[in-house]
Protein backbone atom coordinates (compact mmCIF):
# COMPACT_ATOMS: atom_id res chain seq x y z
CA UNK A 1 0.00 0.00 0.00
CA UNK A 2 1.36 3.40 -0.96
CA UNK A 3 0.99 5.85 1.90
CA UNK A 4 2.53 9.31 2.25
CA UNK A 5 4.64 10.45 5.15
CA UNK A 6 3.07 12.59 7.87
CA UNK A 7 2.03 16.12 6.88
CA UNK A 8 -0.15 18.95 8.17
CA UNK A 9 -3.23 19.91 6.20
CA UNK A 10 -4.97 23.28 5.97
CA UNK A 11 -7.87 24.31 3.82
CA UNK A 12 -7.75 27.90 2.62
CA UNK A 13 -11.02 29.82 2.31
CA UNK A 14 -9.70 32.86 0.40
CA UNK A 15 -6.60 33.97 -1.46
CA UNK A 16 -5.39 36.10 1.48
CA UNK A 17 -6.00 33.14 3.79
CA UNK A 18 -4.01 30.85 1.52
CA UNK A 19 -1.16 33.35 1.48
CA UNK A 20 -1.28 33.63 5.28
CA UNK A 21 -1.10 29.86 5.59
CA UNK A 22 1.81 29.68 3.17
CA UNK A 23 3.65 32.24 5.22
CA UNK A 24 2.87 30.46 8.48
CA UNK A 25 4.09 27.03 7.27
CA UNK A 26 7.11 28.32 5.36
CA UNK A 27 9.01 26.90 2.39
CA UNK A 28 8.27 23.24 3.18
CA UNK A 29 4.55 23.81 2.62
CA UNK A 30 3.02 23.02 -0.73
CA UNK A 31 -0.15 24.22 -2.37
CA UNK A 32 -2.47 21.43 -3.42
CA UNK A 33 -5.08 22.00 -6.10
CA UNK A 34 -6.00 19.02 -8.28
CA UNK A 35 -3.22 17.03 -6.64
CA UNK A 36 -2.68 14.77 -9.62
CA UNK A 37 1.08 15.24 -9.59
CA UNK A 38 1.73 16.09 -5.96
CA UNK A 39 -0.28 13.35 -4.27
CA UNK A 40 1.27 10.45 -6.26
CA UNK A 41 4.72 11.91 -5.56
CA UNK A 42 3.86 12.03 -1.88
CA UNK A 43 2.58 8.45 -1.92
CA UNK A 44 5.80 7.36 -3.56
CA UNK A 45 7.59 9.52 -0.95
CA UNK A 46 9.41 11.38 -3.68
CA UNK A 47 7.87 14.48 -2.12
CA UNK A 48 7.49 14.90 1.62
CA UNK A 49 6.04 18.37 2.25
CA UNK A 50 5.47 19.30 5.87
CA UNK A 51 2.12 20.88 5.09
CA UNK A 52 -0.45 21.00 2.34
CA UNK A 53 -2.43 24.19 1.77
CA UNK A 54 -5.60 23.14 -0.02
CA UNK A 55 -6.87 25.88 -2.32
CA UNK A 56 -9.74 23.91 -3.86
CA UNK A 57 -12.24 26.11 -2.07
CA UNK A 58 -11.04 29.33 -3.73
CA UNK A 59 -13.85 29.80 -6.23
CA UNK A 60 -12.48 33.25 -7.14
CA UNK A 61 -9.63 31.45 -8.93
CA UNK A 62 -11.96 29.20 -10.91
CA UNK A 63 -13.28 31.69 -13.48
CA UNK A 64 -12.70 32.10 -17.19
CA UNK A 65 -13.54 35.62 -18.42
CA UNK A 66 -12.78 38.03 -21.21
CA UNK A 67 -11.42 41.31 -19.90
CA UNK A 68 -10.88 43.82 -22.70
CA UNK A 69 -8.34 42.36 -25.09
CA UNK A 70 -7.41 39.47 -22.82
CA UNK A 71 -8.77 36.04 -22.00
CA UNK A 72 -8.32 35.56 -18.26
CA UNK A 73 -8.08 32.04 -16.92
CA UNK A 74 -8.09 31.51 -13.17
CA UNK A 75 -5.36 29.25 -11.83
CA UNK A 76 -7.92 26.88 -10.33
CA UNK A 77 -9.81 26.31 -13.58
CA UNK A 78 -10.00 22.57 -14.14
CA UNK A 79 -8.77 21.08 -17.40
CA UNK A 80 -12.29 19.87 -18.12
CA UNK A 81 -13.69 23.38 -17.57
CA UNK A 82 -11.25 24.92 -20.02
CA UNK A 83 -12.01 22.16 -22.53
CA UNK A 84 -15.75 22.80 -22.18
CA UNK A 85 -15.45 26.62 -22.33
CA UNK A 86 -16.42 27.38 -25.91
CA UNK A 87 -15.47 31.07 -25.71
CA UNK A 88 -11.93 30.08 -24.78
CA UNK A 89 -11.66 27.20 -27.22
CA UNK A 90 -13.22 29.17 -30.09
CA UNK A 91 -10.79 32.01 -29.52
CA UNK A 92 -7.90 29.60 -29.16
CA UNK A 93 -8.56 26.13 -30.60
CA UNK A 94 -5.11 25.18 -29.31
CA UNK A 95 -6.77 24.79 -25.89
CA UNK A 96 -9.23 22.29 -27.29
CA UNK A 97 -6.50 20.35 -29.09
CA UNK A 98 -4.28 20.18 -26.02
CA UNK A 99 -6.88 19.63 -23.32
CA UNK A 100 -8.39 16.72 -25.23
CA UNK A 101 -5.10 14.85 -24.99
CA UNK A 102 -4.07 15.76 -21.45
CA UNK A 103 -4.31 12.63 -19.30
CA UNK A 104 -7.85 11.23 -19.12
CA UNK A 105 -11.29 12.59 -18.22
CA UNK A 106 -10.91 11.71 -14.55
CA UNK A 107 -7.66 13.63 -14.25
CA UNK A 108 -9.04 16.50 -16.31
CA UNK A 109 -12.04 16.79 -14.00
CA UNK A 110 -9.77 17.55 -11.08
CA UNK A 111 -6.43 18.76 -12.38
CA UNK A 112 -6.03 22.52 -12.76
CA UNK A 113 -4.44 24.88 -15.26
CA UNK A 114 -2.39 26.60 -12.57
CA UNK A 115 -1.28 23.33 -11.05
CA UNK A 116 -0.02 22.14 -14.41
CA UNK A 117 2.08 25.25 -14.91
CA UNK A 118 3.42 25.33 -11.36
CA UNK A 119 4.39 21.66 -11.46
CA UNK A 120 6.64 22.71 -14.37
CA UNK A 121 7.14 19.22 -15.65
CA UNK A 122 9.16 19.38 -18.89
CA UNK A 123 6.44 17.23 -20.48
CA UNK A 124 3.54 19.47 -19.46
CA UNK A 125 1.38 20.30 -22.46
CA UNK A 126 -0.07 23.54 -21.12
CA UNK A 127 3.36 25.07 -20.58
CA UNK A 128 3.97 24.92 -24.32
CA UNK A 129 0.45 26.07 -25.08
CA UNK A 130 0.68 29.21 -22.96
CA UNK A 131 4.19 29.81 -24.23
CA UNK A 132 2.97 29.69 -27.82
CA UNK A 133 0.16 32.08 -26.84
CA UNK A 134 2.60 34.47 -25.12
CA UNK A 135 0.41 34.55 -22.04
CA UNK A 136 1.15 36.43 -18.85
CA UNK A 137 1.13 34.83 -15.41
CA UNK A 138 -0.25 36.79 -12.49
CA UNK A 139 1.39 35.95 -9.17
CA UNK A 140 0.14 37.11 -5.79
CA UNK A 141 2.17 37.47 -2.61
CA UNK A 142 0.84 38.24 0.86
CA UNK A 143 0.57 41.96 1.65
CA UNK A 144 1.91 43.07 -1.72
CA UNK A 145 0.34 43.95 -5.06
CA UNK A 146 0.21 41.16 -7.58
CA UNK A 147 3.00 40.94 -10.13
CA UNK A 148 2.91 39.95 -13.78
CA UNK A 149 5.42 37.59 -15.31
CA UNK A 150 5.55 36.85 -19.03
CA UNK A 151 5.04 33.11 -19.45
CA UNK A 152 8.36 32.87 -21.27
CA UNK A 153 10.03 33.97 -18.05
CA UNK A 154 7.82 31.86 -15.79
CA UNK A 155 9.64 28.55 -16.03
CA UNK A 156 13.14 28.57 -14.60
CA UNK A 157 13.87 24.93 -15.39
CA UNK A 158 12.39 21.51 -14.72
CA UNK A 159 10.06 21.77 -11.70
CA UNK A 160 11.14 25.38 -11.05
CA UNK A 161 9.06 28.49 -11.63
CA UNK A 162 8.93 32.19 -10.88
CA UNK A 163 6.48 31.51 -8.06
CA UNK A 164 8.41 32.05 -4.82
CA UNK A 165 7.61 30.44 -1.48
CA UNK A 166 4.70 32.33 0.04
CA UNK A 167 3.30 33.21 -3.40
CA UNK A 168 0.36 31.90 -5.37
CA UNK A 169 -0.21 31.80 -9.12
CA UNK A 170 -3.67 33.29 -9.54
CA UNK A 171 -4.28 33.91 -13.26
CA UNK A 172 -3.13 33.39 -16.80
CA UNK A 173 -3.88 36.24 -19.18
CA UNK A 174 -3.86 35.53 -22.90
CA UNK A 175 -3.85 38.41 -25.44
CA UNK A 176 -6.73 38.25 -27.92
CA UNK A 177 -5.86 39.41 -31.39
CA UNK A 178 -7.80 39.18 -34.62
CA UNK A 179 -6.56 37.10 -37.53
CA UNK A 180 -5.18 34.42 -35.27
CA UNK A 181 -5.25 30.64 -35.66
CA UNK A 182 -3.84 28.05 -33.30
CA UNK A 183 -3.34 24.29 -32.98
CA UNK A 184 -1.59 21.64 -30.94
CA UNK A 185 -0.18 18.31 -32.13
CA UNK A 186 1.01 15.56 -29.80
CA UNK A 187 2.41 12.07 -30.11
CA UNK A 188 1.86 9.77 -27.18
CA UNK A 189 2.38 6.03 -26.78
CA UNK A 190 -1.14 5.64 -25.52
CA UNK A 191 -4.05 7.90 -24.75
CA UNK A 192 -3.43 9.59 -21.41
CA UNK A 193 0.32 9.10 -21.57
CA UNK A 194 2.70 11.99 -21.21
CA UNK A 195 3.77 13.22 -24.63
CA UNK A 196 6.73 11.69 -26.41
CA UNK A 197 6.83 15.14 -27.93
CA UNK A 198 4.30 17.82 -28.82
CA UNK A 199 4.14 21.16 -30.56
CA UNK A 200 1.74 24.06 -30.47
CA UNK A 201 1.44 26.85 -32.97
CA UNK A 202 -0.22 30.26 -32.93
CA UNK A 203 -0.23 32.28 -36.14
CA UNK A 204 -1.41 35.81 -36.74
CA UNK A 205 -1.63 36.65 -40.41
CA UNK A 206 -2.13 40.22 -41.61
CA UNK A 207 -2.53 40.98 -45.29
CA UNK A 208 -1.32 37.53 -46.28
CA UNK A 209 1.86 37.81 -44.25
CA UNK A 210 2.68 36.23 -40.90
CA UNK A 211 2.71 39.14 -38.48
CA UNK A 212 3.45 37.04 -35.41
CA UNK A 213 4.13 33.34 -34.82
CA UNK A 214 4.12 31.47 -31.55
CA UNK A 215 5.64 28.00 -31.41
CA UNK A 216 5.40 25.95 -28.24
CA UNK A 217 7.36 22.74 -27.78
CA UNK A 218 6.74 20.06 -25.18
CA UNK A 219 9.10 17.40 -23.85
CA UNK A 220 11.95 18.19 -26.23
CA UNK A 221 14.13 20.33 -24.00
CA UNK A 222 13.15 23.65 -25.55
CA UNK A 223 14.02 26.60 -23.34
CA UNK A 224 10.83 28.22 -22.02
CA UNK A 225 8.86 25.67 -24.07
CA UNK A 226 9.16 27.78 -27.22
CA UNK A 227 11.21 28.23 -30.37
CA UNK A 228 12.03 31.92 -30.96
CA UNK A 229 14.32 31.02 -33.86
CA UNK A 230 11.52 29.36 -35.80
CA UNK A 231 9.14 32.16 -34.87
CA UNK A 232 11.55 34.78 -36.21
CA UNK A 233 11.96 32.79 -39.41
CA UNK A 234 8.22 32.82 -40.00
CA UNK A 235 7.49 36.42 -39.18
CA UNK A 236 7.18 38.47 -42.35
CA UNK A 237 6.78 35.43 -44.57
CA UNK A 238 3.73 34.13 -46.32
CA UNK A 239 2.19 31.09 -44.70
CA UNK A 240 2.75 27.91 -46.71
CA UNK A 241 3.89 24.33 -46.70
CA UNK A 242 7.54 25.06 -47.35
CA UNK A 243 7.76 27.83 -44.77
CA UNK A 244 6.12 25.60 -42.16
CA UNK A 245 8.43 22.70 -42.94
CA UNK A 246 11.46 24.96 -42.66
CA UNK A 247 10.16 26.38 -39.37
CA UNK A 248 9.82 22.80 -38.14
CA UNK A 249 13.41 22.07 -39.10
CA UNK A 250 14.61 25.17 -37.29
CA UNK A 251 12.59 24.31 -34.19
CA UNK A 252 14.10 20.81 -34.21
CA UNK A 253 17.62 22.17 -34.54
CA UNK A 254 17.27 24.42 -31.53
CA UNK A 255 15.73 22.03 -29.04
CA UNK A 256 17.59 19.55 -26.85
CA UNK A 257 15.57 16.39 -26.39
CA UNK A 258 16.75 13.63 -24.06
CA UNK A 259 16.26 9.92 -24.59
CA UNK A 260 13.94 8.06 -22.25
CA UNK A 261 11.64 5.07 -22.57
CA UNK A 262 9.25 7.17 -24.66
CA UNK A 263 11.85 7.42 -27.38
CA UNK A 264 15.41 8.25 -28.38
CA UNK A 265 16.56 11.82 -28.83
CA UNK A 266 16.75 11.64 -32.63
CA UNK A 267 13.11 10.57 -32.82
CA UNK A 268 12.00 13.35 -30.50
CA UNK A 269 13.95 15.85 -32.57
CA UNK A 270 12.25 14.50 -35.66
CA UNK A 271 8.89 14.93 -33.95
CA UNK A 272 9.73 18.50 -33.03
CA UNK A 273 10.04 19.22 -36.74
CA UNK A 274 7.12 17.11 -37.89
CA UNK A 275 4.67 18.25 -35.22
CA UNK A 276 5.67 21.89 -35.54
CA UNK A 277 4.99 21.64 -39.25
CA UNK A 278 1.63 19.99 -38.67
CA UNK A 279 0.59 22.42 -35.95
CA UNK A 280 1.48 25.42 -38.11
CA UNK A 281 -0.49 24.03 -41.03
CA UNK A 282 -3.51 23.37 -38.81
CA UNK A 283 -3.23 26.81 -37.21
CA UNK A 284 -3.12 28.47 -40.63
CA UNK A 285 -6.25 26.59 -41.66
CA UNK A 286 -8.08 28.04 -38.66
CA UNK A 287 -7.43 31.71 -39.27
Amino acid sequence: MQVPARFAYERADSVPHALQLLERYGPEARVVAGGHSLIPMMKLRLAQPEALIDINGLTELGQITVEGEELVIGALVRHAELLAHTIATDLFPIFRDAERVIADPIVRNRGTVGGSLCQADPSEDLSAVFSALRATAVIQAGGAPSRKVPIRAFHHGPYETAVEPGELLVQLRVPIRTGTGSAYEKVERRVGDWPVAAAGAVLRVVDGVIEQAGIGLTAVGAEHFCSPEAERYLEGRQPGEEAFAQAGRIAAEHCEPHADQRGPADYKRHLAAELTRRALAAAAERI
Binding site: R189, V196, R262, G263, P264, Y267
Partner: peptide, 22 residues
Protein backbone atom coordinates in the same frame (compact mmCIF):
# COMPACT_ATOMS: atom_id res chain seq x y z
CA UNK B 1 5.68 -1.17 -31.62
CA UNK B 2 5.69 2.25 -30.01
CA UNK B 3 5.82 5.28 -32.29
CA UNK B 4 9.56 5.65 -31.63
CA UNK B 5 10.23 1.99 -32.36
CA UNK B 6 8.26 2.06 -35.61
CA UNK B 7 10.05 5.22 -36.74
CA UNK B 8 13.46 3.72 -36.01
CA UNK B 9 12.50 0.47 -37.79
CA UNK B 10 11.43 2.46 -40.83
CA UNK B 11 14.79 4.21 -40.72
CA UNK B 12 16.61 0.89 -40.55
CA UNK B 13 17.94 1.57 -37.07
CA UNK B 14 15.82 -0.37 -34.57
CA UNK B 15 16.70 -0.26 -30.86
CA UNK B 16 16.53 -3.06 -28.29
CA UNK B 17 13.10 -2.67 -26.74
CA UNK B 18 14.10 -4.55 -23.58
CA UNK B 19 16.94 -2.18 -22.64
CA UNK B 20 17.12 1.49 -21.77
CA UNK B 21 16.62 3.65 -24.85
CA UNK B 22 19.69 5.79 -25.40
Amino acid sequence: LTPANVWRVVNGDPFRTDLAIS
